[in-house]
Amino acid sequence: MSTSISLPADVDALVIGGGAAGLSAATWLGRYQRPTLVVDAGQHRNRFAAQVHGLLGRDPISPSELLVQARADLSQYRQVSVCEATVSALEPTGEGRFQATIDGAQVTAGRVVLATGVRDQLPQIAEIDAHYGTDVHHCPACDGYNARGATVIVLGAGEHVPAYAAELLEWAGTVRIVTDTTGRAFDEAQSATLAEHRISVVDGVAQALVGAPGTLEGLCLEDGTVVEAQKVFFSYAHHPTNDLAAQLGCELDEHGQIAVDGYQLTSVAGVYAAGDITPGMQLVSVAIAEGAVAGVACATSMRGHRTTKHGPSPAPPTRRFTLHQ
């Protein structure tokens, strides 16, 4: 398995994104002996997290260790190569294939798997980089268990915040909201819901985290007030990395995520998508499962077709998979 920029000119499958979803798809494409190139820009969403939780047989494991092991496992499939680069353009060739521009080089592929993920908007407060992934988090499902019994701040305002804060009551001893704004944060109905759940609201703009990473003491506001907490959760915005999907004309939902069917096939024939870039629950275990579905569906869609010279001899087509050709 290569990690250099020595790229093949032509592959059966191009997987864009080398996180959990992309590497899972590549694993199954390798098992179907499909010449596959994985292009990884290294911008994995959970690269700042200390640990991945709830992953069967690997609970917990650091994100970096998980990816190192996944790449090591992938090396047994000689048809799969990985390069650390960026895909800047992707377009159909008009011949049922796709052409990608990868750090200036051109690669054509018969199928594409988009596993480009999303980007989280971080709070603009001092020390956020040091604390993010340790005691500052964006995902209650991922990290709420580690906040059990703790005093938790939910940072931010917006119509989704009351429900987001209430979810953390599954684990936290106390939940309070710091609005991070000087304006009106919640309407009367939202305020009533928060009061019902005994979630207090502190109006003010966040300035800095107090305490060392791993021993958080609270959050300091612009007026000098320190709000006590051992954990901070936030949910400002999540930006799908959908530029390539848009270039191809893939259908996007109202949140900018790529619409897929049960086989992870997008609205564009030959293009699959998996992981956080698609609608649904955003967990590493889910991304791995979706990647596996995309990889198998992508590989089997090529049955009955002669592909690259290094691909397997065409097996007989099957009716089940004709919709994915």
Rank of each mutant, 00 (worst) to 15 (best):
A50V: 15
E196V: 12
T193D: 10
D261Y: 12
L114G: 08
G18F: 00
V205T: 15
Q99P: 08
A246D: 05
E251F: 03
A126H: 12
C139S: 06
Q325E: 10
A141F: 10
S235G: 01
G295V: 03
D10H: 10
R119I: 15
V82N: 10
L56S: 13
V271E: 02
I5S: 05
R198K: 14
T179G: 08
D253G: 05
A49Y: 08
G22F: 02
P279L: 07
S81R: 14
A72S: 14
V286A: 04
L252C: 06
G211Y: 13
G117P: 04
S285D: 06
V68H: 15
L248A: 01
P140Y: 04
R97A: 09
E222L: 13
A49L: 15
G149T: 02
D223N: 14
G18W: 00
L323P: 07
Y77V: 15
D223G: 08
H138I: 08
T318Q: 10
I177K: 11
Q282F: 03
P8H: 06
P317L: 08
W171I: 05
F234N: 01
Q33P: 04
T101W: 06
R176M: 06
L67S: 13
A274W: 04
R119Q: 15
P63I: 12
G280M: 08
A100C: 06
A273T: 00
L209K: 12
K231L: 00
A85Y: 12
G280T: 10
Q33N: 13
L66W: 14
G183D: 15
I288C: 03
F321G: 08
G96M: 10
G22H: 02
D203A: 06
L90C: 15
G17N: 03
I61G: 00
P213A: 05
A89F: 14
H197P: 02
V161K: 01
V293E: 00
Y132R: 00
E217Y: 07
A41V: 09
G173A: 01
V175Y: 11
S88F: 00
I16S: 05
D187K: 07
A292V: 03
L194Y: 12
H44D: 15
P317R: 01
A269L: 02
A212L: 14
T151W: 07
A166M: 13
G18A: 05
D180R: 11
L14N: 09
A165C: 11
I153S: 00
D40K: 07
L37H: 06
Q79S: 15
P123G: 11
T278P: 03
G96Y: 08
P162R: 01
L209S: 04
G17M: 01
G173E: 05
A212R: 13
H324P: 00
E196Q: 14
L66T: 15
V178T: 04
V205K: 13
S235H: 09
H305D: 09
A157N: 01
G94L: 12
R97H: 05
G133L: 09
G214H: 10
D129I: 04
A150N: 04
